[in-house]
Amino acid sequence: MAKRIQFATHGGPEVLEYRAYTPAEPGPLEVRVQNQAIGLNFIDTYFRSGLYTPPALPSGLGTEGAGTVEAVGSAVTQFEVGDRVAYATGPLGACSELHVLAADKLIKLPYFISFEQAAAVLLKGLTVQYLLRQTYAVKGGETILFHAAAGGVGSLACQWAKALGVQLIGTVGSAEKAEQAKALGAWATIDYSHEDVVQRVLALTEGRKCPVVYDGVGRDTWERSLDCVAPRGLLVSFGNASGAVTGVNLGILAQKGSLYVTRPTLAGYADTPARLQAMADEVFGMLDSGQLHVEIGQRFALSDAADAHRALSGRQTTGSTILLP
């Protein structure tokens, strides 16, 4: 027997249960991982609330973790019992002591990355990698807008953008978070609690706006984000922290300057083991070089996952949040 977080109905953090369960035996191409640290991400709240639909209920939760290989399937050749591994794109169920997933969803963890670092950085780091390096390959000297710059993804984006010579304008919700974003490399910040985001972007860019805007907030920032994109620029809508964007009128893209919009996902980029490994290698390389630093702002016991969800949804977190079995 082992313990895990599960939910039988959709709703708020109160639906999360800490339950005993019997982990499955790994299939021929699967691996069972004994988790040492688990990453908490906004996508977890989407599955819990019902914005995203799990395969079945009751369901496990979480897709990111790090630990050691505890058992391998009969056809697995690339991993052995005892290997240090991490994952970020596996099936739901990472919020558990033991997790079974396909071997091709795993990456080997370099010796210089701890389990806690891996659980705190992998999903967010892979997200920043595809956003800044693939969805729109930012270039030195450009000025970009990135919402929620003091959050888990945003804090990494600030650092990565600075390393690339990019001027990142980050939106934040308080003076404290503005200081954090600037310390991490943001060129400028906008405190949306009392500043007009669009007007500040216009002032900071001398009216040119930004060639790309990265928006992981969703519904609450959609219109403002469009107004910050330069003509023929790109809005990258990659998350729904405030709710999903719905009822989009494509005509508005023409009205605001022949804009482009994309809704990317990590699964759409890390869609083969080779691509996943290459992306992870770049993240780990940035960490090893010191250009990227992961801040673990909060640690919760796995049994306190509901409290962690409340803090995350209430925007009371900074950096990354991890759960410890």
Rank of each mutant, 00 (worst) to 15 (best):
A2T: 14
Q6N: 11
H10I: 03
G11T: 08
G12V: 05
E14T: 06
A20T: 15
E25I: 11
P26F: 10
V31F: 10
I38W: 06
R48M: 04
Y52P: 03
A56C: 01
G60M: 07
T63I: 14
A66R: 04
G67S: 09
V72T: 15
G73N: 12
A75T: 06
V76K: 13
V76Q: 12
Q78H: 13
A88L: 02
G90L: 11
A103E: 15
K105F: 03
K105W: 01
K108C: 02
K108W: 02
L109R: 05
F112S: 14
F112I: 00
S114C: 10
S114G: 13
F115S: 06
A119E: 12
A120H: 06
A120P: 09
V121Y: 03
L123I: 03
L126C: 08
L131C: 05
Y136W: 12
K139H: 12
G140H: 07
E142R: 11
E142K: 11
I144W: 07
F146N: 03
H147Y: 15
H147I: 04
G151C: 04
V153C: 01
V153S: 02
V153R: 01
C158H: 09
Q159G: 04
W160F: 01
A178M: 07
A183K: 14
A183Q: 14
L184R: 15
W187V: 05
D191W: 07
D191Y: 08
A203T: 15
Y214P: 05
D220M: 08
D220N: 14
E223Q: 15
R224I: 00
V229G: 02
S237K: 00
N240D: 10
A244L: 12
G247T: 07
V248Q: 12
I252T: 15
Q255L: 15
G257I: 01
P264H: 03
T265D: 02
L266V: 09
A267S: 14
A270T: 10
D271C: 11
D271T: 04
T272R: 08
R275T: 09
L276F: 10
Q277S: 13
D281I: 02
D281R: 08
V283N: 07
F284T: 09
S289M: 07
G290M: 11
Q291G: 09
Q291V: 02
L292I: 05
L292A: 11
L292Y: 04
H293P: 00
I296K: 05
I296C: 02
I296G: 03
G297R: 10
Q298A: 13
F300I: 07
S303I: 01
A308C: 12
T317A: 08
I322N: 11
